[in-house]
């Protein structure tokens, strides 16, 4: 009994010693400042945006704000056909990233991890696009694929009859997706590669000794041990697909709605003399769609930290 009490005492003492006034100040600053900044710069604007989406407002004078209830949402769902088109494009985007780009990134990571010939070269080559922002990616591909761009140039097509990469509805979304994947694949590859390096080689050896094929090893051993990384990769894929904006904006500008996605609809309504409250409503819809994966992402990250 006594000793337990003593133990408690000592731990309490140690704890008290651990948080000296100076420590508390340091901790307060280290936690307080980011929290304050986060609330100020992220949560207050986010909550204000959600609030605004239930109003009529030109975006200029605070006292002009009028309550609109669900009118903006009603308008978006029932009178704005482009919303459904944008949603469809975002879903295709998600499908493409989820089924093609991300698996490709994983495949590359796996191959490089297996130290195939020239793996160092491939690793660098695939990673380079990740260093570039999506906006720069858009500019580069625009130079390549425009009617008077590089590809049409070497094919000898002039601007009266070029291959219409961005103007033809049948494939322009997929052209954009290839551009976006160019960067996304490298990103996923790097994330996955980091995870693969942490997999205990003994597991692989054991599997090999038991006569497992490469595919079986990957499916039964590697994939399950990589669960935390898998979730992060999945969440990143979902978020990247929903928040897509830069590339489309670079290629089509503000008003060009040839490949409408939710991100551009938000911008289109907020910028200029648009309907900022409708933009806020689009942003809220996007927020609701993203929040699920984001929560999952954060929970995994925290679990990792605790471990």
């Amino acid at each position: 009994m006594n000793s337990t009490a003593d133990n408690k005492n000592t731990t309490q003492v140690t704890r008290r010693r651990a948080f000296s006034p100076k420590d508390r100040l340091t901790l307060g600053v280290f936690i307080g400042v980011p929290t304050a900044l986060h609330v100020l710069l992220v949560w207050i604007p986010a909550v204000a945006t959600i609030g605004l989406s239930f109003t009529y407002w030109t975006g200029i004078h605070i006292n002009d704000i009028r309550w609109a209830g669900f009118a903006n949402y009603h308008n978006i769902f029932f009178s704005t056909p482009v919303f459904w088109q944008a949603l469809k494009d975002n879903v295709i985007w998600l499908g493409w990233f989820g089924l093609i780009a991300t698996p490709l990134g994983i495949l590359l990571a796996y191959q490089i991890d297996r130290q195939i010939r020239g793996h160092a070269f491939f690793q660098t080559a695939y990673y380079i696009p990740v260093v570039l922002s999506l906006a720069v990616t858009g500019v580069i591909w625009n130079f390549m694929l425009r009617p008077d761009g590089f590809i049409n140039g070497i094919l000898g097509k002039d601007i009266t009859n070029p291959i219409s990469f961005f103007g033809d509805d049948r494939w322009n979304l997929y052209v954009i997706l290839v551009m976006a994947s160019w960067r996304h694949i490298g990103y996923i590859m790097l994330l996955y590669l980091a995870g693969l390096k942490a997999v205990d080689p003994a597991l692989r050896e054991a599997a090999a000794l038991d006569g497992a094929t490469e595919w079986e090893t990957f499916k039964r051993i590697i994939l399950p041990t990589m669960r935390p990384v898998n979730i992060i990769v999945l969440v990143i894929t979902i978020i990247e697909s929903l928040r897509a904006f830069d590339i489309v904006y670079i290629i089509y500008g503000t008003s060009g709605a040839q490949v409408p996605i939710l991100g551009t609809l938000v911008f289109q309504n907020i910028s200029g003399e648009g309907q900022s409250m409708k933009g806020a409503a689009y942003a809220t819809i996007l927020f609701l769609l993203s929040i699920g994966p984001i929560i999952a992402y954060l929970r995994t990250t925290f679990k990792e930290d605790v471990k």
Binding site: P147, D158, I159, T160, S164, F165
Partner: peptide, 22 residues
């Protein structure tokens, strides 16, 4: 009209005239 209207911005249409293609 050129078939690639949605692929050209105003300056693309202008180029067609400038290059004597339109």
């Amino acid at each position: 009209t050129n078939k690639n209207v949605l692929d050209l911005e105003w300056d693309g249409a202008m180029q067609l005239l400038l290059q004597k293609k339109a």
